[in-house]
């Protein structure tokens, strides 16, 4: 029997090696699904599903997430390939942008005569 390692969406991937679950050696791998709702928009994460391979993942994604014409394009990515930032480190991770309010247009006071800028 082949061994499938189990990962969960939002795991840190290689940092912690994912969460392996010994109880589910026969379970299909988990995939994350991204849907482009219409031409010109980004693909957006909509959820996840289990599938044995790419073809099954795309077909299942169509059946599960686009039953009402919600999409024109589907991406599937095996969940174990997703690497996420650690919420416990959020403070230090985003700290550099905290004190740079001059990056926002409202930081600059200009006379009204300038008009819309």
């Amino acid at each position: 029997m082949m061994l499938l390692k189990k990962y969960y969406y939002g795991d840190y991937g290689e940092i912690e090696g994912g969460v392996s679950s010994n109880k589910s050696e026969t379970e299909f791998p988990l995939w994350e699904v991204f849907i482009r709702s219409k031409q010109g928009l980004d693909h957006k994460h909509v959820g996840s599903l289990h599938a044995a391979d790419v073809a099954m993942a795309v077909e299942n994604a169509r059946d599960v997430y686009t039953r009402r014409m919600e999409g024109v394009s589907i991406w599937v990515v095996e969940s174990k390939h997703i690497h996420a930032s650690n919420p416990d480190e959020a403070e230090s991770l985003y700290e550099p942008s905290m004190d740079k309010i001059y990056r926002h247009p409202t930081f600059y006071n200009l006379p009204d005569e300038v008009g819309h800028m």
Binding site: Y8, Y9, K23, S24, E27, V64, R67
Partner: peptide, 27 residues
């Protein structure tokens, strides 16, 4: 048929949500 298929889909959305809490689908 469409309604019953929706229900299968709803089950899957929910199983996926539960799986993020570290319980496997097989369990």
């Amino acid at each position: 048929l469409a309604k019953v298929q929706d229900e299968a889909g709803h089950g899957l959305y929910l199983y996926s949500a539960a799986e993020t809490l570290n319980i496997s689908r097989d369990e």
